[in-house]
Simulated scan of single mutants.
Amino acid sequence: MNERKGSTLNFVELWEQWKEHGDVEAKKQLIEKHLPIVDYVSGRLAVGLPKNVSKDDLSSNGVMGLIDAVEKFDYKRGLQFETYASWRVRGAILDGLRQGDWVPRSVREKSKKLEEGYQQLEQQYLRSVTDSEMSDYLNISEREFQNLLQEVAVMTLCSLEDPIREEESETRLTLLVDEKAKNPDYKVREFYLKDSLTKGIEKLTEKERTVVSLLYYEDLSLSEIAEVMSLSPSRISQLHSKAILRLRGSLEKHRDLLMQED
């Protein structure tokens, strides 16, 4: 059994043994085989977190997410487990961070104020606003504005399992689940989500779009993006923060419009 543990054929057999026969040993092997996913995801998330956040805590929460993924994954659908598990691991780590109150309330309030500022000014000017305009809106200097972006950078880490709105249970993940039969309400919400994201990305500056593309589509880390763009890691972090704050504002605005049409 151990000699065939790493083979593709044995991997399928492990899923069959676990899902069809409840073989706990097979489940254990599936978890052990995919532990590198936890190391990879926790390592990437750790880059943008404060130093007081323990990487061991990230890994522990990540393992819980991996276990949950192994328990819920349907291998018969032909989907790639690594992708599914990565989202589950990332969601579990972020859930653990939120429950641990890793971000001071003051930082959350500052992040919300920035998000509202971008949403209000871009709705007013119908374009991407400059750092100077945001500084004026917040009544602070541009240097203080840059420091503020750096301070709230940890808040721009978001999970597909985060609620779309704080008071609701519906998450971004529920809009992306691959279901064979999609009801009309699902299709409408999916359309508005994609449309809102598209419009939001179009309003980003070229550098912000590049950071988003390299981080979420090319899967580069912030430090790797800094090398590619010949900018400092702190500058990349600021660009990422601004991009996410703008996108969140765009999603909120279009969701409010959708709710008004109901």
Rank of each mutant, 00 (worst) to 15 (best):
D101W: 05
E109V: 10
E206H: 11
K76F: 14
P233C: 01
D56P: 03
V211K: 01
S132A: 12
E227V: 10
I225D: 02
Q17R: 13
A46K: 09
D185C: 09
R77L: 15
E109K: 07
V211S: 02
E227D: 13
L193C: 02
E252C: 08
K113N: 11
Y75V: 09
N139G: 11
H21Q: 13
P104C: 03
V89F: 04
Q29T: 03
L214F: 01
V212K: 06
S230C: 11
V154A: 11
G6H: 15
E20T: 04
L251Q: 01
A85R: 04
W102I: 07
Y40N: 12
L220Y: 15
D178M: 10
L220P: 02
I31Y: 02
K180F: 12
S59Q: 07
T171R: 03
I31N: 01
N10M: 14
V211D: 01
R255Q: 14
R255G: 12
D57M: 01
S42E: 00
L30N: 00
A181W: 13
T83F: 09
S250Y: 08
K113H: 11
D219P: 10
G22E: 05
L35T: 08
T198K: 13
E116A: 06
D131E: 13
S106N: 05
S86E: 11
M1V: 10
W18P: 00
E116C: 06
E208G: 00
E261T: 15
E224A: 07
F73A: 09
T130Q: 04
K33R: 15
Q119H: 09
S223H: 11
K253D: 11
K72C: 11
K19Y: 04
